[in-house]
C-alpha cells in the first residue's frame, strides 16, 4: 500500500474530506475547482494540519491526530510539484535543483543530479534565472528539484496546466517514466478527464 489517507479539514464553509488507500503507481485526484484537491496535497505534505485522521505513506505515519504524530514538512521526504512551480527567484536553476540536495544525501536518494537533469532534459537551463523560463521549462525544473531532494513519493498539483500541447506530451511521458523506472508513488491532481484516464492507476473523485 502506498498512500493511506484519512483526513478531514474544515476550511471556511467547505469541508474537505478524503479517505483512501492506494496501491503503487499514480493515484489521480479528480474534482472541480474548490473541491479541496490542493488542500489534500497540503495535508499530505504537512503544510496544512488536518482536523482529524491520519496520513501514512508506505507504512510510515506522517500524521496521526489520535497518536499525536505530526512530522514537520521538512521531515516527510515528499516531492511536491506545485501548480505554480514556485521556483526560488533569487537562485539560478542549478541552485534551485540543488536546494534539497542535503536531505537527499542524508537519505540516500535513488537518483543524482546529473541523471535527473538528463532525464528531464534541462541540462541547457542550469545557468538561467527562473524568471527567464517558459511555463513548461519551469515545471520540469520544479519536478527535477523535487526529485533531487530525495523524495520518496511525489505530489503533483496540475502539472500540465499552462503548458502547451507539445510539452504536455513530453511531461506526461516523463511522469510515466518516473512511475515505471523509479517506482515512486504519486498523488496527481487534475481536472482533465483525459489525463486522469491515461495516468490513473487509481482514480479518486473529490
Amino acid at each position: 500500500m502506498a498512500f493511506d489517507i484519512d483526513v478531514c479539514k474544515q476550511l471556511g464553509n467547505t469541508r474537505v474530506e478524503l479517505r483512501v488507500q492506494t496501491g503503487p503507481g499514480i493515484t489521480v485526484l479528480l474534482g472541480p475547482s474548490g473541491a479541496g484537491k490542493s488542500s489534500v496535497l497540503n495535508m499530505v505534505a504537512g503544510l496544512l494540519r488536518p482536523d482529524a485522521g491520519h496520513v501514512r505513506v508506505d507504512g510510515e505515519t506522517l500524521f496521526d491526530a489520535g497518536a499525536g504524530v505530526d512530522l514537520p514538512p521538512e521531515r516527510r521526504r515528499c516531492g511536491y510539484v506545485f501548480q505554480d512551480a514556485r521556483l526560488f527567484p533569487q537562485l539560478r536553476v542549478i541552485d534551485n535543483l540543488r536546494y534539497g540536495e542535503a536531505r537527499a544525501r542524508a537519505a540516500g536518494a535513488p537518483l543524482a543530479l546529473p541523471e535527473i537533469t538528463e532525464l528531464l532534459g534541462i541540462g541547457a537551463l542550469l545557468a538561467r534565472w527562473p524568471a527567464t523560463l517558459s511555463g513548461g521549462e519551469a515545471r520540469r525544473v520544479a519536478i527535477g528539484r523535487a526529485l533531487v531532494s530525495g523524495a520518496r513519493f511525489l505530489l503533483l498539483d496540475e502539472p500540465l496546466s499552462f503548458v502547451d500541447r507539445t510539452r504536455r506530451e513530453e511531461i506526461l511521458r516523463l511522469i510515466e517514466r518516473l512511475r515505471d523506472e523509479l517506482r515512486l508513488p504519486m498523488l496527481y491532481v487534475t481536472h482533465d478527464a483525459a489525463e486522469a484516464e491515461r495516468l490513473g492507476d487509481m482514480r479518486v473523485e473529490l
Binding site: L47, E74, D84, F88, S149
Partner: peptide, 27 residues
C-alpha cells in the same frame, strides 16, 4: 515575500531557520 515559496522550501527539507536564511532574508 511569498509564503508559498517558504512552504516549498520546507517540503524540500529545509528547517524553519534555513528557510529564513535562504528564502525570507534574501528576498
Amino acid at each position: 515575500v511569498d509564503t508559498r515559496l517558504e512552504n516549498a522550501a520546507r517540503t524540500l527539507g529545509a528547517t524553519p531557520w534555513r528557510v529564513f536564511r535562504s528564502i525570507t532574508l534574501p528576498l
